[in-house]
């Protein structure tokens, strides 16, 4: 058991170091000259370019830059944003909670919805309900999330024809709202559409995986035994079949954080949600390399930590892993 934990922790640490290396290569080595990219389309004199290079610290040799980068990273310092002229760590801290709030709610809802839909589909597989549910899941999986968001804005926030707009078109709250009930409704109406978009895009995979793994268990002898004992169909499903089929989907929910993060970049952009995704979008157009680098590190680290969490949860969820 201790060996299992040590191996997983070591693996995660190696991955985190690899993230730091990738970020350095991606944002310091690959762009060639970041100053040229920054001043693209604007007339700049050679002296100005040189001064800017010195100011950003990109005129020093790569090895020196790399040592400096690693040293700062150990202090949690991700550099200074070109665009906002403030610390990247601070910017990320300001925007982090909006994203956690949106992504957390969406992940929770889509996990519940995906598991329920998958279990029902598998238990009555081949039925009309199963076909409809599977069809809807496959279609939603093929739909670009940003387009779904745009459509929801048009239909539910702006209104088409006689249908009035019901929800705000963007943002996370209306400034100047007072009173507990008013603030709560305001928050929830702002959350509704972005959350709905994310759920629609991510629940499908959970539903399809849950369905497939429960179908694998369907013909098992232990289910026949459970039925022969006289258990009701409902109990056979809930106590015997589902717990055995749950592991792949639960794993997927944790491993999928990377996918959800990508989805949140688009959804936050479409709904002007004040989180890390919007920050990433704004940084892309400059391009604000230190900010992109910091966000890349944070997004990747989130994926690695969630994978680690999934690995640590396995033995709790499945006794078979404990003995192995």
């Amino acid at each position: 058991m201790a060996r299992y934990l040590a191996a997983k922790l070591a693996g995660a640490s190696v991955s985190l170091v690899a993230v730091a290396l990738t970020a350095f290569f991606l944002f310091r080595v690959l762009p060639g000259d970041p100053v040229r990219a920054l001043t693209r389309g604007r007339p700049t004199s050679a002296a100005q370019l040189a001064q800017l290079r010195h100011q950003l610290g990109v005129d020093r040799p790569l090895a020196a830059q790399f040592a400096d980068y690693l040293l700062r990273l150990t202090h949690g310092d991700l550099g200074t944003s070109y665009q906002y002229k403030t610390s990247v760590t601070g910017l990320i801290g300001e925007h982090l909670w909006a994203t956690v709030y949106l992504v957390g709610t969406a992940t929770l809802l889509s996990a519940v919805l995906g598991l329920r839909s998958g279990i029902r589909s598998a238990w009555r597989h081949g039925s009309v309900g199963d076909r409809v549910r599977t069809g809807v899941a496959v279609v939603l999986w093929s739909v670009p999330s940003f387009w779904l968001g745009l459509l929801l804005i048009v239909v539910l926030a702006v209104g088409v024809g006689p249908v009035p707009g019901l929800f705000p078109t963007g943002g996370a709250s209306t400034p100047g709202t007072h009173g507990a009930v008013a603030v709560l409704t305001d928050r929830l109406t702002h959350l509704a559409l972005p959350c709905l978009t994310l759920v629609a895009v991510i629940y499908a995979q959970y539903a399809l995986t849950m369905r497939a793994s429960l179908l694998d268990e369907m013909g098992s002898d232990y289910l026949t035994t459970a039925r022969a004992k006289g258990l009701r169909d409902d109990q056979v499903r809930r106590r015997h079949a589902v717990p055995n089929a749950l592991l792949p989907t639960v794993t997927l929910i944790f491993v999928n954080v990377g996918f959800v993060v990508s989805g949140s970049v688009l959804v936050e952009t479409v709904f002007s949600w004040p989180g890390l995704g919007s920050l990433f979008y704004e940084a892309l157009s400059v391009p604000d390399l230190p900010l992109l680098e910091g966000l890349f590190v944070v997004f990747s680290a989130a994926v690695i930590l969630m994978n680690l969490l999934a690995d640590l949860l396995y033995p709790v969820l499945d006794p078979r892993v404990r003995t192995a």
Partner: peptide
Amino acid sequence: DWFLVLPTLVLAAALASVL
């Protein structure tokens, strides 16, 4: 495995913005 866990879109967007 490393490429499998990285947030693909974020990586692709970052690549497309620096190239």
